[in-house]
């Protein structure tokens, strides 16, 4: 800070643009609300007043175009897998995916005999954070969302990647 010290007025903050973008993105990741099974109930509970996702800047959007994060909450059947993929493709960049619960992560209880269940949503879309649980409690989902925020914050969108 040494160079800039006392050069600006009191309410001016100096930051690198990269970090500023990371901060701005990570503190308002709006999520795409679609629930596939019982995990959706926990997701709703997380967004509702007791756990209040608005505290960490998240709010549900009903359209993939307006969302940054897709929370895959529940059992992804093969029929739904194609739709999940389509919805992911409809989201604008930068976009992130949270796999919530054991069904979305690995097929869960349908691992062995569920002929119709996708064995992990990461077969269809790239997943950033896996939240274990059946279903995960709201605290667990919030933990996952905070981990995602850390990940977004550590990104440097303007820095040129060198090999």
């Amino acid at each position: 800070m040494g160079v800039f010290e006392n050069k600006f007025q009191d309410n001016v903050v100096v930051a690198s643009l990269d970090k500023l973008l990371g901060w701005a993105r990570s503190t308002s990741p709006w999520f795409f609300q679609f629930g596939l099974a019982c995990c959706a109930i926990e997701m709703m509970a997380t967004a509702a007043s007791r756990h209040d996702l608005m505290r960490i800047g998240m709010l549900p959007r009903s359209s993939p175009r307006q969302a940054d994060v897709m929370i895959v909450a529940g059992t992804v059947t093969l029929k739904m897998a194609l739709r999940v993929k389509k919805l992911y493709e409809q989201m604008a960049n930068p976009k992130y995916v949270i796999s919530m619960g054991s069904c979305a992560t690995s097929g869960g209880p349908y691992w062995q005999h569920g002929y119709h269940v996708l064995k992990g949503v990461d077969l269809v879309v790239p997943v950033d954070v896996y939240v274990p649980g059946c279903p995960p409690r709201p605290e667990a989902l919030i933990e996952g969302l905070l981990k995602l925020q850390e990940k977004i914050q550590s990104e440097r969108p303007l820095t040129r990647k060198t090999a």
Binding site: L78, A81, L82, Y115, L118, K119, L123, V124
Partner: peptide, 8 residues
């Protein structure tokens, strides 16, 4: 497979 998705 179902639409290219592997069903192990």
């Amino acid at each position: 497979t179902y639409h290219g998705i592997i069903v192990p």
